[in-house]
């Protein structure tokens, strides 16, 4: 499917979703509550078969925290980007997709470690690189006077 068809296909799954035609890929803005069901359908629908999650990045958008999922189908070779956000900064929670793509296990742990986003239903959500005494360094409001030179 090309980008337009992909957009239409996603509309057919859920017409409420906001689809953005990015420079490279089709981007879908998903509310965090619908993320898991959309991901499941994208993975399992015959026409889509997004079986390869090749990148999962956590992003701090300033007041929102978000996660970007880059999905690819190894059969059709089309790509879709799912973006989800949560405005909660104290206790951000998103659904885990590690039951769909096993690679999400490590990626989500990384995101939890660096941005503090908790993934519900994640099998083993522990910090990955840092220990518990650290904050969440990829957040924009993370302050470290010693190690980060801002000038």
């Amino acid at each position: 499917m090309d980008k337009i068809q992909l957009g239409e296909f996603i509309k057919s799954i859920d017409p409420d979703l906001e689809i953005k035609d990015g420079k490279q890929f089709t981007e879908v803005l998903v509310p965090s509550s619908k993320l898991h069901s959309l991901a499941t359908q994208l993975k399992e629908k015959e026409e889509a078969q997004f079986d390869y999650l090749f990148c999962l990045s956590g992003v701090d958008y300033g007041h929102d925290l978000g996660v970007v999922y880059h999905l690819r189908s190894t059969i059709f070779n089309h790509v879709v980007v799912l973006k989800t956000r949560t405005s909660e900064r104290e206790n951000p929670q998103l659904d885990s997709v590690s039951d769909l793509w096993k690679t999400a296990d490590f990626h989500e742990r990384e995101v939890y470690d660096l941005l503090g986003i908790k993934f519900t239903n994640h099998p083993d959500l522990r910090r990955l690189f840092l220990d518990n005494s650290w904050g969440f360094p990829l957040r924009k409001d993370y302050v470290d006077d010693i190690n980060i030179v801002t000038k």
Binding site: F54, C55, S57, V59, D60, V68, H70, K102, T103, D105, F106, H107, E110, L138
Partner: peptide, 26 residues
């Protein structure tokens, strides 16, 4: 994979490296 989010400045807003070894280790 190099995922760059730019806000138009000389510094990137966010850079994510999808490194193969990290994934292979999992």
């Amino acid at each position: 994979g190099v995922y760059i989010i730019s806000d138009g400045n000389k510094n990137p807003y966010r850079v994510k490296f999808r490194s193969p070894n990290f994934v292979n280790l999992s």
